[in-house]
Amino acid sequence: MLYREALNKAMDEMMEKDPSVVILGEDVGFYGGNYKVTEGLYAKYGRKRVIDTPIAENSIVGTAIGMAIGGLRPIAEIMTVNFSLLAMDQIVNQLAKIRYMSGGKIVLPVVIRMPQGVAKQLAAQHSQSLERFFASVPGLRVFVASDATTAYYGLKYAITTDDPVIFLEHTLLYPEKMEIEEEKNFSPYRARIKKEGEGITIVSYLKMLHDTLKVVPIIEKELNTTCEVIDLCSINPLDISTIANSVKKTKRLVVITEEPKTGSYANEIINKVLEEVFYELDAPPLKIGSEDVPTPYNRTLELASIPTPEKIASLIIKWGRKHGI
């Protein structure tokens, strides 16, 4: 199975179960989705339930809000997170606030799905990670789907909950082969320990998680220690207790995200860990992220702007040696 097929399966099952679930977005229907995530659903459920929209991101989210008011459970696909900036009023001023402003009278079970991240030479306007923007807005749940399992269960959860959910995927994960590991009681609000270890806690998600896992054996060999790798499914709320408990054990923290480092969500994770377990730490936390530049088109420069497996390994090894591992 492919990562994108896990997302498709989640939507398919929820649509089959609940006729109030609908999908809307640009090219999601007749065309089958620009990343093929909604492939086949138009043929199966028809154009009333898989709704092609004009290029009008603000009103894609706006009409999804109206649909939720009218009793539906819409899944709005924004083609990429870059275009969500056109919908920020509807996301931030409307979706996140109407429940509160109405004293709880209006409930908006809306999911907004979108891929983010740096793919390959798409240049600055198509190569961003923006989770920090969403995660800092009260009233939104923000999920990140790192693999087929969290994609499948996380999206099913997002469609089922009455809270508005921003559901972030990664462009480069769509064609990756993965399997859904069966889980009986999945909660997106529990962080997932992907690998246990004793010497360094590494927190990551989406593509950076995979890049990290690739080089963990090198890091462990070079530093003669073991790494505990934690994947997040929800970044707001954040399962801080799982992370803090791990850091209490390892005494060291590394956070890896693809956002430019200034103001990245990694800062929030590090800040929360410091508040909880500052005196337990044996080394200052290490933050790995993209350079503070718009993503360049040129491939060499592009690779220089983002964390790669090699960079992740060398940065952690250098940091580990400096701080006595």
Partner: peptide, 30 residues
């Protein structure tokens, strides 16, 4: 706001409720 009266705001961002009305009409028709 009061759903009892099918009254959905009261929106303070100029024009932002217009797509809401379109979405609600879509849902009712659906």
């Amino acid at each position: 706001y009061d759903p009892k009266f099918n009254f959905y705001g009261g929106n303070a961002i100029v024009g932002a409720h217009l797509p809401h009305a379109v979405g609600a009409a879509y849902a009712r028709k659906y």
